[in-house]
């Protein structure tokens, strides 16, 4: 009898220990932006630019303009790889439909050398079939930009614990804001601005 009790206690301890380690439901584990977030944001920005009064008032007879994008400046709490920083601005301006539309408005797009190199590596890596692969860039010579395209990425971050008694942060929410500005190089007058917001929430110990 005594042996049965000892055996039972030991087996119950072991089983209980295993039971305590059960798995929970799978939830988002990171609040960092996803490729899909960027895709949606880029399309939204592109649509806003295409339908802007700045574009709608232009035609093929309008004075020639040259747009040069800068690398997206990261002011967020989230790290963005250099390739992604160029990819976002490139995908707004270098989408075939956008290039066609810009061409019909007598606007040429040129990239600074570093941007062209990185964008080429991004496109040649085949990151996305719709990303505008096989694009050709305007030659650098004799194409001084009349307008610069700036993009900024910022965020608001909150982290807290789901535990009512407090504890290590296990929920984090990031609200991201991506805004684009086109300004005239000569006067620095802003001719167009547009922005997109999206948010991400993740659960799980931040330290684990």
């Amino acid at each position: 009898m005594r042996k049965q009790i000892i055996t039972s206690v030991a087996l119950m301890s072991f089983t209980g220990c295993i039971a305590l380690t059960g798995c929970g439901p799978t939830r988002a584990r990171t609040s960092t932006y996803t490729a899909a977030d960027m895709d949606i944001a880029v399309v939204e920005i592109r649509d806003k630019l295409a339908s802007s009064p700045f574009m709608s008032t232009r035609s093929s007879d309008s004075p020639s303009l040259v747009f040069q994008p800068n690398r997206m400046e990261n002011l967020s709490n989230e790290r963005i790889s250099r390739v992604d920083q160029w990819a976002v601005v490139s995908r707004v301006l270098l989408d075939p439909s956008m290039l066609e539309m810009l061409g019909s408005k007598n606007i040429t797009v040129t990239l600074p050398p570093v941007g062209e190199r990185i964008t080429n590596s991004y496109l040649s890596a085949g990151t996305d079939a719709d990303s505008g692969a096989n694009l050709t860039f305007a030659p650098q010579s004799n194409l001084l930009p009349t307008h610069m395209v700036d993009a900024r990425f910022s965020s608001i971050t909150r982290a807290s614990s789901e535990d009512e008694d407090g504890g290590l942060a296990d929920v984090r929410k990031d609200l991201f804001l991506m805004d684009f500005t086109i300004f005239m190089v000569r006067t620095r007058e802003i001719v167009w601005a547009g922005s997109v917001e999206f948010a991400r929430v993740a659960e799980g110990l931040l330290a684990n």
Binding site: T21, G24, T30, R79
Partner: peptide, 20 residues
């Protein structure tokens, strides 16, 4: 490394295998 550090609860649900 950054993506991994930014992933929360990477070891959540590994308790059973930790026991074994």
């Amino acid at each position: 490394l950054y993506d991994f550090l930014r992933t929360q609860g990477v070891n959540k649900g590994t308790g059973l295998s930790s026991v074994l």
